[in-house]
């Protein structure tokens, strides 16, 4: 077990990189997922079709395949995903700005994939709001966006927040894949490095990275339980 202490800096570095990609991917997936959700509930049929097509594609493909497309498809198209080299943001998340694009590719894949699930979690919340609420808003003359903003979304987030949290927890665990697509130094890839390349015993290393993931996921799960309990009381 001494590897946990001797190589603490490797675990800590892996934790920090995984946390970075998860933070960025969560923000990206929430934004993109919200946009896709708005498309899917829009009164305009072509927009709905776009939203539905998006969800059908990314919810039904394995994340590994999406990662493949991002890591090998984007370079084939001549893209290094340089649009993610966002000035300022790359000062905190240094991998965003590196010449090696694999962090950005993995981020794109994780965002595209997770957004489909975020969309569905948001939509399940919207569906939990009785149809009469939106009808009353429409009958007053509120536009689609006003209806969402003032009537539907303030009531739907309560029903969305717990499934959303589950989606984000799943995303944190899914991020373990990025190491296999060129991202060096996240939690999972660090484990590979320590065992395969440096010859440390597998079990202690696996325990180490497990602790790393649990530090991220367990508090999030506990937070969700609290929110759920408080809602149960309010109801």
């Amino acid at each position: 077990m001494s590897v946990l202490i001797d190589k603490f800096d490797v675990f800590a570095g892996g934790f920090w990189l995984t946390l970075q990609i998860c933070l960025l991917a969560a923000i990206g997936a929430l934004i993109l997922g919200a946009i896709v959700a708005v498309l899917r509930i829009s009164p305009v049929p072509p927009l709905r079709a776009v939203g539905t097509a998006y969800v059908n594609m990314f919810r039904n493909l394995p994340l590994t395949v999406v990662m493949f497309f991002a890591a090998f498809g984007l370079p084939a198209l001549g893209s290094n995903a340089d649009f993610l080299r966002i000035p300022g943001l790359d000062a905190i998340f240094s991998r965003l700005g590196t010449d090696l694009p694999y962090f950005r590719f993995a981020l794109i894949a994780l965002v595209l994939y997770t957004a489909a699930f975020v969309c569905e979690a948001l939509r399940s919340g919207v569906n939990a709001v009785p149809a009469g609420q939106a009808e009353a808003a429409r009958s007053l003359g509120l536009t689609f966006t006003q209806n969402l903003r003032y009537v539907v979304l303030p009531q739907s987030w309560k029903a969305s927040v717990v499934p959303l949290g589950s989606v984000i927890i799943a995303m944190i665990k899914n991020s373990a894949l990025v190491g296999f697509f060129g991202v060096v130094g996240d939690l999972s890839q660090s484990a590979d490095q320590l065992t395969s390349a440096e010859g440390h015993a597998f079990v202690p290393v696996a325990i180490g990275i497990s602790i790393g993931y649990l530090i991220m996921t367990v508090p999030l799960g506990a937070l969700l339980d609290r929110i759920e309990k408080r809602q149960a009381v309010a109801r």
Binding site: P43, V44, G132, Q133, E135, A137, R138, S139, L140, V151
Partner: peptide, 25 residues
């Protein structure tokens, strides 16, 4: 059809529902 013009028309027609549909929040 759906859109701003319809929203404007709806604002000129009051509607009262069987199940009230007051905004719960």
């Amino acid at each position: 059809a759906e859109g701003k013009a319809l929203a404007k028309l709806r604002s000129e027609v009051g509607m009262v529902f069987q199940s009230f549909n007051l905004f719960a929040h």
